[in-house]
Amino acid sequence: MFTSLRVVVLGACLLAFTAPGMAQTWTHEGGTLTLNEPPERIVALNWAATETLLLLGITPVGVADKAGYSTWVQEPALPGDVANVGTRVAPSLEAIAELKPDLIVTSTEMAPAARLLERIAPTYVISVYTQDSQPFERAREMLLTLGQMTGREDRAESVLADIEQTLGQQRERLEQAGLTDKPVALLNFLDDRHIRIYTPDGLYQKTLDSLGLSNAWQDAGNFWGFASTGLEAVADTRNSRVVVIDPLVPGLADSLASSPFWTYLPAVRNHEIYRVPATWPFGGVYPVKRLAVALTDALIEGGSDNVR
Rank of each mutant, 00 (worst) to 15 (best):
D65H: 07
T50A: 09
W72H: 11
T59P: 03
Q131V: 15
Y129D: 06
I58E: 00
A227R: 14
E172L: 12
R269L: 10
A64K: 01
E232S: 11
G221T: 05
P183V: 09
L93E: 08
H271G: 11
D305G: 12
D162S: 12
P200H: 06
T32G: 09
V82T: 09
R115W: 10
E175I: 09
V293G: 02
L167S: 04
T59K: 10
R140I: 07
V63L: 08
E75G: 10
L35C: 07
D209F: 00
S133E: 07
D102A: 09
D219Q: 14
Q169W: 01
A113N: 09
F2L: 15
V285H: 00
V243R: 01
T108D: 11
A177D: 07
N222P: 06
T199D: 00
T150Y: 06
D102N: 11
A44K: 00
D191Y: 00
S258G: 13
A233N: 14
W26K: 02
S259V: 07
P266N: 10
D219R: 13
V184F: 09
L144E: 06
A113C: 07
Q169C: 00
L167F: 00
W280K: 05
G302V: 01
D254N: 13
E40H: 12
L10G: 15
G11Y: 05
H271P: 01
K289G: 07
P101G: 05
T87R: 13
L56Y: 02
M149E: 03
P122G: 03
Y286A: 12
A253N: 11
T166K: 09
R115A: 15
V8F: 15
S158Q: 14
A23L: 11
R193Y: 09
F17R: 14
V105S: 05
F223Y: 14
R269N: 10
R290P: 04
V8A: 15
G202I: 05
T18C: 11
P260G: 09
Y69T: 03
D191H: 03
E37N: 14
